[in-house]
Every structure is written in C-alpha cells, then in structure tokens.
C-alpha cells in the first residue's frame, strides 16, 4: 500500500467523526461567539460586532456576582472533595485487603448510578426542614428547632462534594494502586518515616492524577445547573443559573452566549494554570 493511499484511507476513517464534531460542536460554538457579540432589541437579534453584552456583564453587579458565587463554590468544593477523597482512596488502596477492594470501591461509587437529578433531590430530603439530619439532631437533643440547612450554599456544596468525592476517590485510587509498592519500600529503606514517605514519594507520584481529577471537578462544578438549582435556594445564583435565566425569561440568546463564553474562558484559564500536570487523554 502506498503511503498516499494509506493517508487517504485514514482520512476516510476519521472523516465521519470529524464532520460530526465540526457540525454539532465547532459550528454551534462559533455561532455562540458570534451571538455573544450581537445585541437583543425587543425580540430580534441585532448583529454586532459589539462588546455590549460583556460590558453589561462586568458592570451589572447582579450578573458579575454570579461568576463570583460560582468561583467561590467551585473552589470550596474542589478543595474539600480532594481533601476528603485522598484519604479515602489511600485507605481503600493500602488498608483494605486486596480481594475486598473491588467490592468496597463498587460500594463507594454506588450512588453514581442514581440519576443526577435524583441525587440532588435526595440531599434535599436529607437536609430539609423535616429531613433526616434535622430529625436526628432534634432527636438527640442537640438542637431544639430545625436548622435551615437546605436552600443554602452549604447544601449546594454538600451536594457537589458528595458527587465529586466519589469521582475523585475512583481516580486517586487508580493512581495509588498502579504505584509499585517498591517506591514506598525504597523510601522506608532509605530511612523515611510514614509521613516523609507520603510527602516526598507518594504524593508527588500521584499529583498528576490528583490535578487531573481536580480539574475535572472544577469544570463539571463550574458548569452545573441542577445542584445549585435544587439545593441552593434563590438567594444567590450561580453563573449557569443566570445563563438559564437569560434563556428562560427573555430569550436573550446574545447575553446567555456572552456568559457562556465567559464560563468557557474561566475553564480555559484553569486549564492553562494546571496544564503541566494534566493528562487530558487519561480522563
């Protein structure tokens, strides 16, 4: 087979996927960018190009606030999830007997298999006024009146952390078990204690996996609409909630597009910030 014929055949294989991605991902995205530079007057889109939407976003506190809220929530969720998931993954990888690890892991991600919408709803049941947590707290006599747990940022963060702890436990575990036990043995052999071994050997070796997982958490958390919508109440709104509002209330596609582009930009910045540890192809 001549190299040229081979290349032609290769293009033949790749073409369908490439066309699909071009038509239903790249083109919509370009359209969105173009829309974000247009304006809505009444119910008609007036073609741009203009930065009106972006200027409005950064000057109108109620909109800019959405970005800040999203960033705050995402930051807290990412840090807390990693902090909770790492020890859990380590315990499963190093403490739980090998033949039970699979079972424990399946159990640890069991709630993955409920519907995403239902999972947030379940937290609403747990954290609500008459919910399980409040019932337990009052039953034990710790509090007298039910606490306001749902419809708060705390509830949103809890819902997110629950999901991402599962995700991160899985990725970090996969990283930990593929480490050769000889690394830890070598460190111990050379006089490193438990903590030193972890800090100087295990952690750096698993860092790329952790960063990849954290980045994934960041992306998914930043763009999620359901969890804050169900659990967060309406005192503060995240960026995705505001985007949905633009669509729903006024059909303001240009503004929604501008906000989506801003969301993309934030994610891209996060990507650049941790690009050197990221292995996107491993996700």
């Amino acid at each position: 087979m001549s190299p040229k014929a081979g290349t032609r055949q290769g293009w033949g294989f790749v073409a369908p996927a490439l066309l699909w991605t071009a038509a239903f991902f790249v083109a919509p995205f370009a359209l969105m960018v173009w829309l974000s530079l247009s304006r809505l007057e009444g119910r008609t889109v007036v073609p741009g190009p203009g930065l009106d939407n972006y200027i409005r976003f950064f000057t109108e506190p109620s909109l800019l606030r959405g970005l800040v809220v999203s960033l705050e929530i995402t930051a807290v969720v990412t840090v807390v999830s990693v902090a909770l998931a790492y020890p859990l993954a380590a315990i499963i990888a190093f403490r739980v007997p090998r033949r039970w690890q699979r079972v424990v892991l399946v159990l640890a991600i069991l709630p993955f298999w409920t519907s995403y919408v239902v999972r947030s709803y379940a937290w609403l049941l747990v954290l609500g006024q008459g919910g399980a947590v409040n019932a337990a707290l009052m039953g034990l006599g710790i509090t007298e009146a039910p606490l306001q747990l749902s419809a708060t940022r705390f509830a949103t963060v809890t819902g997110f952390v629950h999901f991402f702890v599962m995700l991160l436990t899985l990725t970090i575990y996969a990283n930990l078990v593929q480490l050769s036990p000889n690394y830890a043995r070598a460190a111990a052999d050379l006089g490193a204690g438990r903590v030193a071994t972890f800090v100087h050997v295990i952690l750096p070796l698993t860092l790329p996996g952790v960063v990849t997982g954290a980045f994934l958490t960041f992306v998914l958390c930043m763009g999620d609409y359901i969890t804050p919508q169900i659990l967060g109440g309406n005192r503060e709104l995240t960026l995705p909630q505001l985007i949905m509002m633009q669509l729903g209330r006024r059909g303001d596609f240009p503004m929604a597009s501008a906000m989506a582009v801003i969301l993309m930009a934030v994610v891209s910045l996060a990507y650049l910030a941790c690009a050197r540890w990221l292995r996107v192809e491993r996700i």
Binding site: P28, M32, I243, M244, L247, A260, M264
Partner: peptide, 9 residues
Amino acid sequence: VSYLIIALG
C-alpha cells in the same frame, strides 16, 4: 466543555 454550553450552542 460544560454540557450547558454545548446545549446552548
């Protein structure tokens, strides 16, 4: 890319 952005596009 967030699903929301794909949906919007």
